[in-house]
Design a protein around this nucleic acid. Structure first.
Lengths: 232, 232, 232, 232
DNA sequence: AATGAATGAGCGTTCATTCAT
DNA sequence: TATGAATGAACGCTCATTCAT
């Protein structure tokens, strides 16, 4: 299967002196710690140890832990962009075939330890850290760009906004599965059947959904007990 | 709209009126801190401050931080169970109507600060904390129990296992939206349209999906470049 | 064998209301903790727990931990005075017989958990706590009083000061064995042979020692290398 | 007089000149605190203060307080071993002369603040801390090794076991004096006379004691009231 | 480029003590 | 008498960060 590279280094850091190699080592070690032991364990000391160097040396490359973490997260998120480029470059298939392939590909990806352990943590952090929120958002925008190109081919009867909402729904449906069928999760063994359900359901959604369906609840007050009498 | 109570108290902690009130105050304060500032900020000192008492007094009620966190999480997760009971108790609607109501209800719920800020954090923690993993799993099992009762009414042509996988897909599709359209998230303003997409798409899924769809990819090797020639 | 009572309560606390019984319970519990878990574990909480009451109730009886500890130690040290009175009251034996009996009795006593665990701790505390130093000193003065009455009968050729020094040597020889042959100590199994050595050696000492022996090193500079040439 | 070095350093802790010096400073400061203020006062903060550095810096050298205390105690106990080697190396005297010298030397040593304040604390701790018990035991074994070499020369008529018990008695007689005639203790001014008594008494013991004396009480039940009728 | 040393703040936790009830 | 509630200080320890070498 297509393999996402673990880390992508920011361009401009390309002169491969010893220092640059160290930066890679540090980020790789940091990612290992993050995935294996969680965000709480991601300390300068722990990273240094995993890297076989001293704390002082880590701070030589990263003046603050925040810098390191941001570099790590941007790097690792950029690595995910490659997968989308890879998909988009495929021209041999029909839009529908490509759509199903993308869905399956993403569902396979969330079963990796890296994705299962990384993204929920990013979601959590993004609630309190605008920088991370922006990074994550940017990545998902990239992910949906692929869908945004395919969906109009499958169903041309949607406004651009509606089509984007459908892409969002598709993406969210897949991401949500991380928690249930990701790495070491209880439903992991049923992923192939889940792929079947998702492929069928999401493709049908894209094919059949209408403006009317989408705007059905618009501007309507909603309550669980939406009886004739007003709620609350 | 139906409101999930913030916290459910485990009986037996602090048996006198004043003490019981304090326990509530502590847990409420802890939840506030968790939601407002994130899990990293959830320290004994921070909780005490948010509660207007001293650290020593917090430890008077909770011998260890772990105890407090467990009490907090079990309490807050139990509070979510009520919503499912509430839904299940409705008898005036058809299965399809109820199904749509549940989907909309859950989607509305994830727009609350509480749900948006709590669950991604729990997903992250559950990757490295078996206790939390179990708590979360238990809650979602309860959530799916509601779906498991409705789906066979809508579509009787599924084995029990298949039906449960469909319920899982429905639940995951909704949960995944937390990250994109939850509290303060960029797609939050389009939630009503998202509800439309989800209602249509997920109801169609339940109604139309077949065993064949589900088992379509079963036991087939999958790779992005699934050409005749072997990948990698 | 003669049994030392665990604790002696100060007189004047004789009105046996419920409170007085509680004081006894507290002190007994405190002694248990001290002997079983050591001085570091002797906390108000630990005592309260061992007593089945609350910390607040312990402080009701003892305004400060210091008070409690002092009451405990004076009580337990007074209990040792009884053994000496018991010995002194014996009139059926010759002085030499009584002397040997006392030595054996004291050596047997140091094998008890109470004595082995209590006294080294008192010795340690007395180095930094004048009150405890005085208590302990007082008790040993009482212990030596018994010897001071016997020694002149056995050897009348000593000045009072010399005789008291001999009594001190006898007492110290016995006490020193606590560390080696006390409760659970490696030489404990050989206590009967140690009694033989001590009885023979200390009785001979009392019988044979002269003023000349005692003052042999008086006012003489001493050094390990006390050769003709002066050291250092 | 022969001076016991305050501390023996375990090699390997803090390998650079500055760090090695700091380790020494820390251990010296810790020993000062222990001797001056007692074991209860031996806290990381107190040590750091006595050393003029911060707590964080102490933990830089000692990952845990336990490590520090162990290093301190093994170091200080090893320092005592030197005194025994020093004694053993003397070849110019007869066995009896050496024996008397050892006794006087040890009695002089217990008058030092270091010995008077350290050992009772170690005896107390060893009752509840197996590690300390072992350290102390090891040191005393070393101390008795010196006696074990001299006693057979003075009195060849003892089995090896009996001879070792005699050495134990000699050692215990001396150690017991710590509490009465040690540093700042009431009988300290009479130490020279005490040396006279101990020298005479213990030398006579070694010279004259027989197997019969030692085994006199063996396997005999003992009680204070060992009258024909059984007590209790 | 890398280390060892050091700081200062904060962590969870324990403790003696006070006090209203 | 006895409890539960609460405080404030101290504990051992970890951490990000700074800096001289």
């Amino acid at each position: 299967m297509f393999e996402v590279p673990r880390l992508k280094l920011r361009p401009g850091t390309g002169n491969y002196s010893k220092g640059q190699a160290r930066v890679v080592e540090i980020l790789e070690a940091a990612l290992d710690v993050l995935l294996d032991e969680g965000y709480q364990a991601l300390t300068m000391r722990r990273i240094a140890k995993a890297c076989g160097i001293t704390v002082g040396n880590v701070t030589y490359y990263y003046k603050s832990k925040d810098d390191l973490v941001r570099d790590l997260l941007t790097g690792v998120l950029e690595s995910y962009m490659d997968i989308f480029d890879h998909i988009a470059s495929d021209t041999t298939k029909t839009a529908e075939e490509k759509f199903v392939t993308v869905i399956r590909l993403l569902l396979e990806d969330i079963t990796s330890k890296k994705t299962t352990h990384l993204f929920p943590q990013l979601w959590a952090l993004s609630n309190h850290d605008p920088f991370i929120a922006e990074c994550v958002d940017e990545m998902y925008t990239g992910a949906r760009a692929v869908l945004n190109r395919m969906i109009p081919e499958i169903n041309p009867n949607l406004s651009e906004e509606e089509q984007k909402l459908v892409a969002l729904f598709v993406s969210a449906s897949i991401e949500g599965m991380t928690v249930f069928a990701g790495y070491n999760k209880p439903w992991r063994p049923h992923m192939q059947q889940i792929e079947g359900i998702a492929a069928k359901s999401l493709l049908d959604c894209v094919k059949n959904i209408t403006s009317e369906d989408i705007n059905r609840f618009r501007d309507k007050d909603f309550s669980l007990d939406d009886s004739p009498s007003a709620p609350k």
